[in-house]
Structures are given as C-alpha cells and as structure tokens.
Computed example of a mutant assay.
Amino acid sequence: MASALLLFLTLPFVFSVDPKCPEGFHYFKRAPTAWNNYTKEWCLGVIDGKEDCGNRDFARSICINHNATISMPENKHEFEFVTKIPGAKKTKINHAIDGQMSPRCVNKYMKHHYWFRKETGECNLKKGLFLFDDINTDPSFILDNSEGSPNHDDAHRVNETTSLVKYISTCLTIMGGQIQTEFCFGQQMNEYNSKAADIRTVVCGRPPL
C-alpha cells in the first residue's frame, strides 16, 4: 500500500517535466494547426556549418547530421530567438532557412519576370511559390514578412558566341534580420561570378527528445 502511494505521489512530477531538446536546440511551444501538422512543441537550433550554408544541399545535410530538418521560425517569438544568434564572423545574422522556389515557378519567372505577390495562380507567394521540407512548421509568418521574391537575379555569358545563362535567388534566408531570398548554390555561384552572400549557419528543427 505504501509503495502504491509513493508511486502515485511521484507520477505528477514525472509527467510535469517539460520535454527537452538536444544540445544546441531551444524548446518552443506552438499552437497546433493544420498548417503545422498539429505540432504542439518544436525544437529549433541555429547550427554553424563552418562552411557555405548558402549551398542548399549542404545546409540540408547539416540538419540531417543533427537528426533534424532544415526549418524556420513560425512566429515572432521564434523569429526573435533566431535573429539574436549571430551568423558568420559574429557580424551579420545570415541564416539559411527552409523554403525553395518551385521549379515550375522558377520557369515562369525566367519567361515573364512575374512579381509573385500579385500572381494569382499556383505561384502566388502565399500559395505555391515555395516548397518546404519541414511539415511541422507553418511558413505563413515568414511569407508575410518576406522582402519580396525573388530579391535579385543575375546572368553571365562566357563569351559573345555563347548563350546568356540566367539564374535567380530562389532559397529563403534570414539576412541581417530580414527575410529574403538568396542563390541556392552558395557563395561560389559559378566560375565567373561569386556575388552570393556569406551564409555559414542554418536553422534546423526537430521534435523534442
């Protein structure tokens, strides 16, 4: 009887402990909705990749190595947490986050230079312009506060006899505390041009332990 009473008294303490996140991650409670796959709690971390996280495949691999997925802040509270963490060389807040423009929309931009905030079809900023890896984060906050998409494009020609090669910034980032797009292939855009921003960190997300 005494042992049963002791177990009863300890149960509330066992189940009242907040879920924990792995080292380098911060715990957040969320309002579960259909847009975030009814996620009640989530761990976010800003991981230093030591190299060029502007390369989207490399940024993804950094998160995977931490048993996480490339992610993003879902609300103002999470955004303020993420933007307080310095990026490369402790001088700029430059982070890769989830969100890459769909190939279909990239093709539309190449042909027509759409302004996607006004596009009413599948490439509307709030509808299908971006594809996301993280199914547990609602991207609405990021899309509502983005600086426009894409933010910039570029082009080069090897010589006068070759075709003009165009490319646009299609990956979402947090640059200096602002949400915008950058080139997905990182700092070294190609052998002729390396204007892309220096991004050494990536926002990763995962469930609590």
Rank of each mutant, 00 (worst) to 15 (best):
K20S: 14
F25G: 00
E23P: 00
T33C: 03
L9S: 09
V14K: 10
I47F: 01
I47V: 09
P12T: 11
K20R: 12
A31C: 00
T10G: 13
K40V: 04
V14S: 11
G45N: 02
P32L: 09
T10M: 15
G49K: 02
G24K: 04
K40I: 02
E41P: 01
Y27L: 15
N37I: 05
V17H: 07
W42G: 02
D48V: 04
D18M: 12
A31G: 02
H26Q: 12
L44F: 06
K29V: 07
K29D: 10
Y38C: 02
Y27C: 07
L11E: 10
H26E: 13
T33L: 05
C43K: 01
S3V: 13
F15W: 10
F13Y: 14
F25H: 04
C43G: 02
N37M: 07
T39P: 01
D48C: 01
A34H: 07
F15E: 13
T39M: 06
L7F: 14
K40H: 08
L11R: 10
T33D: 05
W42K: 05
H26G: 00
S3N: 14
P22Q: 08
N37H: 09
H26I: 05
D18I: 09
G45Q: 01
E23G: 09
F13G: 05
C21R: 05
G24R: 05
S16Y: 10
F8C: 13
S3L: 15
D18N: 13
C43S: 03
T33H: 03
P32R: 07
T10S: 15
F28D: 03
G49Y: 03
V14I: 15
F13Q: 08
K40S: 11
N36W: 06
P12W: 10
